[in-house]
Design a protein around this nucleic acid. Structure first.
Lengths: 216, 216
DNA sequence: AATTGTGAAATTGTTCACAGCA
DNA sequence: TGCTGTGAACAATTTCACAATT
């Protein structure tokens, strides 16, 4: 636990998988799981599971395995899921509205508080009780509502400009669905969710049909 | 090119990024780009760009760089974007309908031919001219329409069963949006698009606010 | 002068194998 | 006995550095 060292990107992503697997095990009534169990569920190796967890502490009992509930809570708190985050979503098109009404996010503590669009027909209305505001108000509203994280679901050509406003408003995390590589300062965390990449990857696999490339 | 060797997962994904960057450069009227240019656009190193491309051949000219149009076409053909793929989408909820009407996929050769749902109210209607069929017909329809690739946007608990039907129908590529780890045979290519993972990753970064973890 | 293409070196990530404990 | 935790071994990936080419 003292080793505040470089935790790899992939370790963090696998933590999310473990968290999900543990939630399911909990629902199914299990009290303990072994690294073997976790590995099988997520198509990994037991050693990998143990190594990943070991970066954060020793949560298991030798001979027995890991306590489901406690490990889930522990991973949740590592990932920051034991608190709530204020989220805003910019671009209420097809994808944006779909995400706005996606209940899973709320459950994990990501509370979508504001929606933004530039379409006068949409501004003033709401989705599932979340108001759609004028995109021009981003600066003031993001600050006023203490937004921690912004989801961008808008057309590619407008994304960079909007991202800059978001950054100016002090937001430090952006999940970007627009099909462009955003430029943001070093201290802003950015992830790109790019469905084209996944489709193209599958296309590559189909075309070179031989060696598989499982999982994501 | 002769080296039919293990091309890494990450190399293929970066190819998608290069493809996108080259499309933009082409639109902007550039005839050549250097590895430096490409790297800057996608936040990578020039060496990485050159190494990635070198797995597939020598497309550049020393001293000059890469010809935009040709390199784009070359990468397109490596990724299998120079042909068309028949796609079906299963689960016409919020996310499913959003993706069904997302025009970018069509442009890249991914033609969504069929939609499936189990809701009698939806079956028989259509989205942008794509018919919504009864999910019970998956078996026959996927085969009849020579579907290459299936996008699954349905609730987690139903996903595994449906995936098995899809596999039985001979489909070899699945893009899964359901929040579960699907089990499919070795010869079926599977990618998981998992938005929760990206949000949780950002949550982790915010919580441990110090060292950044850019990009996706 | 600029920029590619590529072995070799450095780094990062994964798996092994086993000591240590319940 | 069974399973964790972890250093050491191994494998994969990235970066370096430079000869080759225009």
């Amino acid at each position: 636990m003292q080793n505040i060292r470089k935790i790899s990107d992939s370790t963090i992503r696998r933590l999310s998988l473990y968290y999900r697997a543990l939630s399911n095990s909990e629902k199914d009534g299990y009290f303990t799981v072994s690294s073997q169990d976790l590995a099988k569920k997520e198509r990994l190796t037991p050693a990998q599971v143990r190594k990943d967890l070991s970066f954060f502490g020793s949560f298991g009992t030798r001979g027995l395995g890991y306590p489901v509930k406690e490990l889930k809570e522990k991973i949740g708190s590592i990932l920051g899921l034991n608190r709530s985050w204020n989220v805003a979503l910019i671009g209420v098109g097809n994808l944006g509205s779909a995400l706005a009404s996606y209940k899973e996010f709320q459950k994990q503590g990501f509370h979508i508080k504001l929606l933004f669009d530039n379409d006068p027909k949409k501004i003033g209305s709401s989705i599932d009780g979340i108001p759609i505001l004028d995109i021009k108000q981003i600066g003031t509203q993001l600050k006023q509502n203490k937004i921690d994280l912004v989801i961008m679901t808008l057309p590619g050509h407008t994304a960079q400009g909007v991202a800059e406003e978001v950054v100016r408003a002090g937001v430090k995390a952006i999940l970007n669905f627009a099909p462009v590589s955003l430029k943001v300062p070093e201290d802003v965390f950015l992830r790109n969710e790019n469905m084209a990449i996944e489709l193209e990857y599958l296309s590559f696999c189909l075309k070179n049909r031989n060696n598989p490339g499982k999982h994501a």
